[in-house]
Design a protein around this nucleic acid. Structure first.
Lengths: 191, 191
DNA sequence: ATACAAAGGAAACATTTGTTACCTTTGTTT
DNA sequence: AAACAAAGGTAACAAATGTTTCCTTTGTAT
């Protein structure tokens, strides 16, 4: 990354930070571009040079979050076989526990689904080149749906978990998630 | 419902229809309130009387969809025990298959998560007074997470399914969903 | 070192948004 | 039937949005 690009990225980051900062005090809807630019000590022109609108800032933020998550997942690459689901849960829960302040802010501002949209769009292609718990056998279509189901389940647990004012520590949620998966499995076995 | 209320509901419905109509031709972001009002042959004043903004129209629409779904679910109330999960899948898939044109429109316009948000918020309290497949034993917290997981899974399958130009017929998806649940169950049993 | 391209600032601009004031129409109540 | 309240229409309004013009600054390339 050269100096020019770094300059742009820096501006984007400042605008992001400004928006997050404002969101702790004010409703997302009521925050104006002028306000964001002023807080970031940049001109409105620079805002519109960096982003299309307010939502695009959230997109950028979520993109970054997602990339961080995937980086961490690749480092601690869960091994296929036993414990894989548990390890994946662990990485998932610990990552989002670290980011809980930001996520709670997004949830309170009604922007969680915005994140979810980006998450789902980026996750599906990425997981296709990666051994995930749902990567068992099956046609590509089957894998896709199995993945969608589990990914949706994970994300929604995240929503419920961090949507609370005082979320439980990640270890407790891990047990609850295992129970959730187990109960689903049981409801199949009664047929 | 008296005539006055009916009048308001009628206006809301016309505005809804107008927005849906415009969304088939134009990007949601680019549709102005003026345009919606003109298409509905009502004044901007009436729009602002009925809704806070464009998003509120989508909320209203999604509220209606949700209520319709739940009505159908209560009519065909799946019985606890065997086949419950399958019956629930059936109702779910057939309902959304009927509504696929609208859902596909929402997905293409990036409004699926908007629907998801409303869905999740309304579903969790409702399902608490209703025997659902995840209503097995456990503390309220446990039931809540089990429910969140499955609900998120269902919704995300819906996204992937109807996000396609030519979605498979519901029967095929039902098999895929059962497979998804089964594979999750299997990945637990290998531990 | 100079020329060049990309980024930022200032300010003006048309549009859109959300709100308001005033008036007319319509359904409800007594 | 008369009075009233709620809804719709017209038109004006301030504020915010998104775009443009012109100019300055700052890295990059030759």
């Amino acid at each position: 990354m050269n100096g020019k690009q770094r300059m742009v990225e820096q501006s984007k980051q400042w605008l992001c930070d400004a928006l997050i900062n404002l969101m702790t005090k004010e409703n997302f809807q009521d925050i104006s571009i002028t306000e964001i630019a002023q807080t970031a000590e940049l001109s409105r022109k620079t805002f519109y040079h960096s982003f299309k609108n307010k939502e695009a800032v959230i997109n950028y933020l979520c993109d970054q979050l997602f990339d961080q998550y995937f980086e961490q997942l690749l480092q601690q690459k869960p091994q296929v076989g036993e414990m894989m689901l548990k390890t994946t849960f662990d990485i998932f829960l610990n990552f989002w526990w670290q980011k809980r302040d930001l996520i709670q802010l997004l949830i309170r501002q009604g922007l969680f689904d915005h994140m979810n949209e980006i998450w789902q769009q980026k996750a599906i292609p990425r997981y296709q080149q990666f051994a995930a718990p749902w990567h068992v056998q099956g046609t590509p279509t089957q894998v896709n749906y199995v993945m969608a189901f589990q990914l949706g389940g994970f994300t929604n647990i995240l929503r419920v978990w961090l949507g609370q004012d005082q979320p439980e520590p990640p270890e407790q949620i891990k047990d609850l998630m295992l129970l959730a998966a187990q109960q689903l499995a049981d409801s199949l076995n009664t047929n």
